[in-house]
Design a protein around this nucleic acid. Sequence first.
RNA 1: GCCGGAGUGGCGGAACUGGCAGACGCGCGGGAUUCAAAAUCCCGUUCCCCUUAAAGGAGUGUGGGUUCAAGUCCCUCCUCCGGCACCA
Length: 857
Amino acid sequence: MSDYLPQEIEKKWQKYWADHGTFRAADPATDPRPKFYCLTMFPYPSGTLHVGHGRNYIIGDVVARYKLTKGFNVLTPMGWDSFGLPAENAALKNKADPREWTYANIAKMKEQFRVWGVEYDWDREVATCDVPYYKWTQWVFSVLYRRGLAYRKKAPVNWCPSCNTALANEEAAGGMCERCGATVEKRDLPQWFFKITEYAPRLLDDLQLLDQWPETVRTMQANWIGRSEGARVDFKVAPGGTAAPGCAGQPLPVFTTRPDTLWGVTFMSLAPEHPMIPALVAGTPQEKEVLAFVERCRRTSAVDRAAETAEKEGVFTGRYVTNPVNGEQVPLWVANYALMDYGTGAVMAVPAHDQRDFEFAKKYGLEIKVVIQPDGQKEPLRAEDLTAAFVDAGTMVNSGPLTGTPSPSGIPEVIKFLVKQNMGEGTINYRIRDWLISRQRYWGAPIPIVYCDICGEQLVPDEDLPVELPPTAEVDFRPHGESPLAGDKKWVAAGKCPKCGGPARRETDTLAQWLCSCWYYLRYVSPVRPGQPNSQAFRKTEVEQWMPVDQYIGGVEHAVLHLLYSRFIFKVLHDAGHVGAVWPEPFRALFTQGMICKQSSKTGKLEKMSKSKGNVVAPDAIIRQYGADTQRLYTLFIGPPQKDAEWNDSAVAGSSRFLKRVWEQVENSGGMAASGHVVPYAGSGSDLSPNAKALWRRTHQTIKKVTADIETSWQFNTAIAAVMELSNLFADSAPSLAADPHGPAVLRFAAESMIRLLGPIVPHFSEELWEKMGHEGGLIAAGWPSYDEAACREDVVEIPVQVNGKLRSRITVAADSPDDAVRALALADEHVVKSIADATVRKVIIIPNRMVNIVAK
RNA sequence: GCCGGAGUGGCGGAACUGGCAGACGCGCGGGAUUCAAAAUCCCGUUCCCCUUAAAGGAGUGUGGGUUCAAGUCCCUCCUCCGGCACCA
């Protein structure tokens, strides 16, 4: 007899796995096992992981262990997304070096993984802030640059005043900084962009390949990419209006999804940021007012501009534009509801058939012209009667040659007409914008570009990579709106023009951390091994052997950030021929786990576990008191892993209780090695007593259930519940089975099965018991238990008997009894007889082995 | 507003393809053990009626429908969570 002492056995097995290289992936070229790439999103090394973080890694560890046990060559790597703001902020606060802060945190968190029993192939570890790693992040930039997918341009960009850097649109969704929640501003700054828009069609189409991704993530990406079909229509500035004659004839194309309403255009709205505005109003009486309005719009934050309450506002430019289809001249306005970064920044306004245009027209007394007549309405729709825009389909009216066409078919007709007249064409517009990748912060990979006074912007050649960050001692990295690197004059001046060999200024912006995490899964498959030169980002042959990732596990918050960026970068590398002949997507299957929540002492509400909400549960105390296996068990038992769950401190004890109980059961009745080796029962069951048979059968059923739960639906909670049920039956039958002829053998079979099924879930506990039972070589080598379908089948079943759908009795019959026998038995049952006493039986429905329903009236 | 997801005991959650609602666990109540407590074990635990038991009745957000049978399928409405939101 020995007590369950998690602290001792957990250390022992953690050492065992490390010593035996249990989680070291084998070379797929020589290993006969099928490969399985199990990837859990790597964390930002913020210092400590709480139990909420743990869920992610524990799930990944269970999957990796399960697949290993099933006989796969599993690759399960881990690393650190270690560039980014918190390191800098922490360093500023503590007057320390972000480098030191980061590596200290990495060491702490690595230890936390070890203590959890969450194991990885650490030989492949990467930290994105390692110089040998970011050398290749810079190379990825170069790949895009050389393919014309990276460019620098001055543009109004999202600026986070709190983080002091420009942000990508994806990081500023909803007008708030994704990291700190501050309201973003628009600033005109020269910034680096990746042409993700060029890949929009493929990023959208290939979502169809991702049938093992959650529907929500695919939908979010599809919405973000935002494809809409329509037409470009070439309006032109009309000669009329005030002054500035040079503008006349200038093209002002618009994008519309409703070319069928083209004859209903009564004005045009330009976005306040539209670049043609200054020229259009130069020297006109409207100039002052227009420019003042533009300035006011610019100062309004994106949040306020997009707010539901935001009033539509605009100002007339004094100019007119010509509608190409009918030659009509309509007034040109600047309006705050027109967006510069969608379409062309100019909107053809059809107030009769677009609600926004309608509101604007009503406010400023602009003309409203009906060109779509609702079907099934005799009276012509009159503009004066409209209280809202009529936006549905109908029949085109007052539309020149297309009058009378049903509006849905009118759309392609109008496009045909436009093309023929050379006035426009059918186009597809995407909502997604190019990806802003430059950051004005220190702790990131420098963008490998130099500026030569003679040759201009030049890419740093591959052989000169990495462009290393200067040591922190040289840099004042307090954020102040310009990249801190710019303050290190020596570093900036150290650039060399690759073309003329002369001195060149270095680019001082750094790359967004998102780029670092776009390719890390490729570095894992192809790490630099000791003694090897760091001469490639990754080797094509290894990429071909391991990619795609078979299972990716992480949080849904990355749906349109990391997961979209990674798909994009992978496709570019694919196109450039760097990853070889592999599937065009990096991640075959994606699992997004739910968050662990807890009541916040600050808000009083149920909130995602986080330091700022003051509701974190540290794993340390739990591990000290109960052991890591208890925490693992509870984390998996808490609920379906894809759903959010509330952490309940008192329920943790229940998980510990269960482990203790199983421990004692196995020690007392499992046939330990010390008490003489008992061979687990492997017969057909026909020689067993009823009690023994029940436990034997339940064991087979449990193996079946747990296998299905883990394999197909990741229902760890119900898998654990099934083992609990088996354990409960074990406890009930153990006393009587001790003296049963096959009793000890059946108990041994049940005990071994419980341990093996719990193996991936509570690995230290299971390994220890497995060893105590006299097995060598560990649970993974033992393989996953199999079950016998015939053994799962009950030979006696209890069938509920309903009368008119209400449960009245139960009968016990042999499994697969003929319907006639079941019917006779059911109708003879005393409870049934009573409830159909004064009625006649109309019908008896029998579902074999399941249900009898007697319809009586 | 639009697009997803979800509403089941005191709580977390089970329920195959339409077939016994509430598995498993937490909590709670009762008991055993103990000088006492902790721990452990046993019994009970959807609600209503009932001293108890038996036997009933009601019950899966709302209201309707299909069916021998509905948590599950169809329609209506309500609530909550997530995402997007003046996208032309």
